[in-house]
Amino acid sequence: MELAEAKQKFIESWGKLGSEWGINRTMAQVHALLLITPEALTTEEIMEQLSISRGNANMTLRDLIGWGLVEKQLKPGERKEYFFADKDTWNIARQVAKERRKRELDPIIKILDELTKVKGDTKDPEYATFNKSVTDINKLAKNVDKTLETMLKAEENWFWGSVIKIFK
C-alpha cells in the first residue's frame, strides 16, 4: 500500500470511528488529516484534501479548537490561519476524556445526585426499584469520574502501569 492510499484509509477509518463515538464524521476526518500531516494546514488545504466546503471546514475547525484538539497558528507576514493538531496520543486521549466528562458525565452525575434524593416508601416496589437503579448508576458514574480524574492528572507510564496491575 502506498503512503497516499494509507493516509486516505486512516482518514476514512478515523472518521468512521469518530462517528461511532458520537463525534461528527467530518470533525474526526479533519482531526485525522491534521494528525498525520507534519506541518500546519490552512483552511483551503483542508478543504481541498477532504473535498469539503468552506463553511463545513470553518465550523469543524472551530469545534476541534473548542475540544482543545487543534490549535490555530499565525505565521509572520501571512494573513492565512494555519491549523495544527497535537500528535501526542496521550494528550489527545486526556483531552477527549476531559471534554466528554464535561459534556456527558458531569451533567448526568448532577441529575443522578438530584434523583437519589427523591423520597418514597421503601416498601413500595416501584420506589425501591427506582431508588436502587438510580443509586447504583450514580455510584458507577462517580467511580468512572474518579477514574477519569486520575487519568487526567496522571502521566501516561504511571497510569498504564496502574491499570495493568489491576488486571494481573
Results as ranks from 00 to 15, higher is better:
63 D>V: 07
82 Y>S: 03
51 S>C: 09
124 D>L: 01
14 W>S: 07
144 V>H: 04
68 G>D: 01
51 S>W: 11
113 D>M: 04
34 L>Q: 06
86 D>W: 07
54 R>E: 11
36 I>H: 00
22 G>D: 09
106 D>K: 15
148 L>H: 02
24 N>L: 09
127 Y>I: 03
72 K>V: 02
92 I>L: 15
145 D>K: 13
35 L>C: 08
133 S>H: 01
57 A>M: 06
151 M>C: 06
36 I>S: 01
88 D>P: 07
89 T>L: 13
62 R>N: 11
116 T>N: 11
95 Q>S: 04
29 Q>G: 05
37 T>C: 08
85 A>W: 05
88 D>F: 08
145 D>G: 06
50 L>N: 01
130 F>D: 00
138 N>D: 10
87 K>H: 14
119 K>H: 06
73 Q>N: 06
96 V>L: 12
65 I>W: 07
14 W>V: 15
29 Q>I: 13
129 T>C: 03
21 W>F: 15
154 A>R: 04
141 A>D: 11
39 E>G: 04
28 A>L: 10
59 M>R: 15
22 G>V: 03
87 K>F: 07
78 E>A: 12
28 A>T: 06
153 K>N: 10
19 S>F: 08
137 I>K: 11
127 Y>E: 00
108 I>K: 11
107 P>D: 09
53 S>I: 03
14 W>Q: 09
32 A>M: 06
137 I>G: 00
18 G>E: 05
149 E>N: 10
113 D>F: 05
22 G>Y: 13
104 E>W: 04
116 T>R: 15
